[in-house]
């Protein structure tokens, strides 16, 4: 075999090896593939009442109030994971437990304060407050007021609703 033939064979062999190497590396690159993971976290708002309240009577016997002397505010914790939920406090329409004429000439009102993810102070219960993201501690006070007459002796109980609404 002459020199030219030897050189040609060597070149062909090298080219073949190069092509094999290139196709091999191309195959290695094509072995990669992407797997897509998806997920969704739904909007949530939770209200957990942590303490009930205690109302005490005033000197004129016509106001039952949790902000009075020896009164105790109600506590709740609100948690949200998105902005835009609102919080409000609904006053009761009547006592759930009261002596006779307990509801007569009586109006109910509430105020609340928020601290944590949202901060407001002494807001009327009927006012909707937008909540920030996160955990917010809530202090709620309730009042029952006689426009005429006084509260008779006995046990009183009323239900105040802390409502969180999605945006």
């Amino acid at each position: 075999m002459n020199n030219l033939t030897k050189k040609l064979n060597a070149t062909l062999l090298a080219s073949g090896m190069l092509l094999t190497a290139m196709s091999g590396s191309a195959n290695a690159a094509n072995n990669d593939a992407d797997i897509t993971f998806t997920g969704a976290v739904p909007d949530t708002c939770s209200v957990v009442v942590t303490r009930g309240g205690v109302m005490t009577i005033n000197a004129n016997q016509n106001i039952l109030d949790s902000t009075g002397a020896s009164g105790v505010s109600g506590l709740a914790q609100v948690a949200t994971n998105s902005a835009g939920s609102t919080i409000e406090v609904l006053s009761p329409a009547a006592f759930t437990l009261a002596p006779e004429d307990g509801d007569l000439n009586t109006t109910f009102s509430t105020i609340y304060s928020l601290d944590g993810g949202t901060i407001v102070e002494n807001v009327q219960g009927t006012v909707l407050t937008p909540l920030g993201v996160g955990v917010t501690d809530m202090v709620v006070d309730a009042t029952a007021t006689k426009s005429a007459g006084t509260f008779n002796a006995g046990a009183y109980s009323m239900l105040v609703t802390v409502r969180c609404v999605t945006p």
Partner: peptide, 12 residues
């Protein structure tokens, strides 16, 4: 024993 507060969550 009942609490005097009700927690309520509302969806739209």
């Amino acid at each position: 024993k009942g609490a005097s507060y009700r927690g309520e969550v509302c969806g739209k």
